[in-house]
Simulated assay, not measured.
Amino acid sequence: MATDGWTWQVEQPEGWLLVPAAGMLPPDELARWEREVAAMIHADLDDEPYTGRGTGPDTGPGTGPGAGEGEALHQLYAEVAARSVANLRAFADGVVGSGARVAATLRVPDVTPVPVLVTVGVEPPGDAGDDLMTALGSTGGHPVAPPTIEHLDLPDGDGMRVTRLDLDAATGGAWMSVCLGRRTEHPDAVVDTVLQWRSPDLLRAPAMTKLLDELLPAVRVTRSTP
């Protein structure tokens, strides 16, 4: 991806997927990616033991007591996997026009891949950081309490993590978000990297906090013009 004389890419860490948007791959490669990821998700979901499926010589689809229930679960998992891939792809297609990418982690137990929005922006030297703070979620919305803002020392810039809990005014539900930012200053520009995770699954926040810390170094930003 390129922005204002800078090029950036996400070097896919172990346990993560970089979700392609339409047009980023030839149609046959995109279809193959979807099939392979769906099969991977299905296999992971289908790995739970249940009556009628297992690893012994007399177990497997359609064998043993309860095989009907096993086959029903097997089909349900296939549908969940296909729907998960479709949602990831729709998310990626919806943000690519703004220059963003979607990465998804496979390392959150008991759930399908969890998407994270990845963006990189370039500001002039001396920028006050208002856009960065807004992107990180330090302002706006309907927070239950003031967002928690942490400043981080990073090897390649200044870091900031914003964690917040918001009320959904439309449904009355709650949304947790964890956003991680990195600001790298150059003589002629300020480059901001932002990772955003948001979900009604409030209990996933601690795991996502650690995973975002691992993903950030994989976002590589280089100068593309002299």
Score class of each variant (00 low, 15 high):
V108R: 03
L106N: 03
G181A: 02
D192R: 06
T171A: 12
F91H: 15
A81L: 10
T55C: 08
E150N: 09
V95L: 02
R107M: 14
A205V: 09
M24F: 03
E34W: 06
T193H: 11
R89P: 01
T225P: 02
E71H: 08
L212G: 06
A38P: 06
G129M: 05
L25S: 03
A189H: 07
A31Y: 02
A43F: 02
P206Q: 03
A39W: 10
L195P: 03
L30M: 04
A207V: 12
M176N: 01
D46M: 02
T119G: 01
L25H: 13
V194C: 15
S199M: 05
M1T: 09
A2H: 13
A31D: 14
E185D: 09
G141E: 00
L132S: 08
V10R: 08
A81I: 15
L152S: 11
V111F: 07
V111D: 06
R32N: 05
A38G: 15
A2N: 05
G56Y: 00
D44T: 10
P113K: 03
P187Y: 08
L25G: 07
V116C: 02
D93N: 14
D93G: 08
G60H: 05
M24T: 12
G157S: 03
D93V: 00
G121Q: 04
G94I: 04
P125H: 14
Q196G: 03
T63Q: 04
G94H: 05
P124K: 01
T184Q: 10
P124M: 00
P61G: 07
P57H: 06
L154Q: 12
V80F: 04
G70L: 02
G172A: 08
D188V: 00
V10P: 00
L212W: 04
L30K: 10
G23N: 02
T222D: 13
G52I: 01
A145H: 08
G126K: 14
G129F: 10
T63L: 01
D201V: 05
R198Y: 04
G60Q: 07
H42S: 09
R83N: 14
G97A: 13
V114T: 15
P109E: 15
A39R: 15
A92I: 00
W8C: 15
G70T: 00
H42Q: 03
P143L: 02
D4A: 15
T193Q: 13
T209F: 06
A218T: 12
V85T: 01
A92N: 07
G68H: 07
S199E: 06
L76Q: 12
D46H: 06
T139I: 15
V178H: 00
G173A: 07
V108D: 09
V122I: 07
P146M: 00
P26Q: 01
T7D: 14
M133H: 13
L76M: 11
V162T: 05
A103G: 12
G54L: 02
G5R: 08
Y50W: 07
R89F: 03
A67R: 12
E214S: 02
V120M: 07
V194P: 15
W16N: 04
